[in-house]
Design a protein around this nucleic acid. Sequence first.
DNA 1: TAGATTGTTAATCGATTAACAATC
DNA 2: TAGATTGTTAATCGATTAACAATC
Lengths: 217, 217
Amino acid sequence: MKRNTKVSTAVIRRLPRYYRQLAELQEAGVVRISSSALGKSMGLTASQIRQDLFCFGEFGQQGYGYKVELLKEEIGEILGISRGHTLVILGTGNLGRAIIQNFRFSSNGFQLLAAFDISPAVVGTAIAGIPVYHADQLEDFIAQHKVDVGMLTVPIAAAQQMGDRLVSAGVKGIWNFTNYEITCSQEDVVVESVHFSDSLLALSYMISQREDPEEDL
Amino acid sequence: MKRNTKVSTAVIRRLPRYYRQLAELQEAGVVRISSSALGKSMGLTASQIRQDLFCFGEFGQQGYGYKVELLKEEIGEILGISRGHTLVILGTGNLGRAIIQNFRFSSNGFQLLAAFDISPAVVGTAIAGIPVYHADQLEDFIAQHKVDVGMLTVPIAAAQQMGDRLVSAGVKGIWNFTNYEITCSQEDVVVESVHFSDSLLALSYMISQREDPEEDL
DNA sequence: TAGATTGTTAATCGATTAACAATC
DNA sequence: TAGATTGTTAATCGATTAACAATC
């Protein structure tokens, strides 16, 4: 029945949340859950959850609901967690270093292969076991290894240039942490950005609304 | 004419992007821009931009377009950039430290007042000029200073608890970097999350689509 | 079996796009 | 003035919600 064709971004953005919530439920020992209970725990309607899952197939049992572990695994499959994705990280400044040391790439189905930088102080060293190469070697490295994603934690001035190099070296996606909107010539390369600034400014707007005594009443 | 009532989150999420794009245009020396040119540069329709701005007032001139600097300033006002917002950061691990050292809070209208941690190794020190206090002092500090936002870069196990403490201490918003969905009793406290995992999993999904030879044709 | 809950279609709601008079 | 472009309403499109037969 699966009609995978053209899943909206709204649905795609909810998939990781489902996965996270189901993992938490599983850890808490919950075996089965209904769409309405799952919805309540996530602030969504039961309808929306069933509609979302309907994009990908049938994962529940009528009259029973969903098996937590099974549904989690299925959504993990949809997200591509078991595809053995790999990535490299460009830029080992404070943020890059923090992510190398902290982020559980493997929990998200990714393997971090290498880091690249231009500073002689770090090139040739390893951070949390990840070797740091000179940025000059980027293309060679990607030619010799399967690299699915390049992560950008470089200074903003280098963002577009390094993005371009990743694209022509053949990565499938760019995970962009710079405060710059990378533009990508190649149609089929996905750019996913984490803009701290955008997030903080949205928060700023929302709390500002609270600060004003209802201007418009 | 301003009908500020109930601006959709879709619009709110675009406001920081407008702000960023206009700042770039201004830096590039562009003085005036039409909605269609701005739209083209951002991948939006001219209609959408005019409709978005229409939520907040009239910022353009018919037959001319928008003055880049003026529109940037107006959107900055809407976002609350000049309201003197303040924040404190909870958790000075790798990520917290990286953000203290790197992130330009002031560019987003925020002042970082203090950091809190429980490790004796950092309590009493300063990171990039920001004093680090013991988490026990959080409530006292917030009682004595105006603190609008609490930023969470604590371990996931402490996330909900520290979030609760921030809320009862009276912050208006929580900027959550933990991979946990903070729930908030208080209606009027805004929780804005930056979930690295969700972002990477969405990217994982999108590149996985590219990996399959069109399953459904 | 009766009760519960899904999968799936239909109805509603909201967001985006189109259109155009107003006007710089 | 004529051309360009906005502000704003109307039309369209897509996403969410509701409904319900199927069925466990």
